[in-house]
């Protein structure tokens, strides 16, 4: 996945996220959710902090709960709350699938971090918005630099009475703010020198060109083709009514025989990342011997 061209990676993620968010067909959601989960469990998409996942899942649970409590649609009333709102079976089913949708989205987005890192983002941005791309690159450059300067300033200002480890929240706050101010002033002062260096190297003299190290490979071609196919199939299946669903007033799912290929295609599409990861893994083991790996 990491080796994909930014364009194909972008196509894949855009399609998977938009379809997961827009289509609420239970099977589509479940396929998306389990493929994302499988991809995360394969463990080849970088470090994902458990804390972040937990907080995201909590947000999803909150959303589900709010929906369950405040939504009165549906025929089959399970419980009637004292405030007049009713919890219905349909809402419960819908909330459950909505929860799968949310978590699927969260999982997909978490995997973007490693497979679709900042350099690829820069590639996509930089093509269309060169100044914005440069601005982001410079921001990323200045962040560690500012953090370092903040630390130096804190050390220098400590003796002058600004101690970030001092007592009391008020003192701490004051110290932190003052140090930020001093460090930011110095940063802005130095931005002038950076600007000079940019001009000296020709910035602004002519239209900027764009440097990229990415090449479009066969694999990228395959991913983009499958993406387009799948989007076309899913959209047409839902537009023509081959696949349809409804949660209200009663929960019902209709799947035409011709709709099944569309679902299968969607499944194949969602499994692209897992497929690529497993394929690479198998190739690696074959060429390096299974026992060593």
């Amino acid at each position: 996945m990491k080796a994909l061209h930014p364009f194909s990676a972008f196509c894949f993620y855009a399609a998977v996220i938009i379809i997961t968010a827009a289509v609420q067909h239970p099977l589509v959601l479940l396929i998306s959710f389990f493929s994302a989960l499988l991809f995360v469990l394969l463990g080849k998409c970088g470090k994902i902090s458990g804390k972040a996942v937990l907080s995201a899942v909590l947000v999803c649970i909150f959303g589900t709960a709010v929906n369950l409590l405040f939504n009165n649609e549906g025929q089959t009333v399970l419980i009637r709350l004292s405030c007049g709102n009713a919890v219905t079976l349909e809402t419960a089913i819908y909330s459950a699938f909505a929860f799968f949708m949310m978590t699927a989205l969260v999982l997909w987005l978490f995997t973007t971090g490693s497979c679709f890192g900042s350099d690829k983002l820069m590639y996509l941005f930089g093509r269309t918005f060169p100044s914005l791309g440069l601005l982001i690159s410079m921001t990323m450059r200045f962040i560690p630099y500012f953090a370092k300067r903040f630390k130096e300033t804190a050390a220098a200002q400590k003796f002058l009475g600004c101690d970030i480890n001092g007592k009391g929240v008020k003192n701490k706050l004051r110290a932190v703010l003052k140090i930020t101010s001093v460090a930011l002033s110095a940063s802005l002062e130095n931005a002038g020198y950076t600007a000079q260096s940019m001009k000296y190297r020709g910035y602004g003299s002519t239209k900027r060109s764009f440097y990229s190290v990415y090449r479009f490979t066969k694999r990228d071609f395959a991913v983009v083709t499958l993406t387009l196919l799948c989007v076309a199939a899913t959209v047409s299946a839902f537009c023509t009514g081959l696949l349809s669903y409804g949660y209200y007033p009663v929960f019902k799912v209709h799947t035409d025989a011709l709709g099944i290929p569309a679902l299968l295609l969607w499944g194949a599409f969602c499994l692209i990342p897992c497929g690529i990861t497993l394929y690479d893994e198998i190739k690696w083991r074959r060429s390096h011997g299974a026992n060593k790996a």
């Binding site: 962040i143 500012f146 932190v176 940019m198």
Partner: peptide, 27 residues
């Protein structure tokens, strides 16, 4: 077509804002 100094200053401010999120973790 922002000038070099404009981009540099905006980037410096952005960096401070982002780094601030890490720096102010105690609050």
């Amino acid at each position: 077509k922002p000038k070099a100094i404009e981009i540099a200053m905006i980037a410096a401010l952005c960096a401070a804002a982002v780094a601030g999120r890490q720096i102010f973790f105690m609050l």
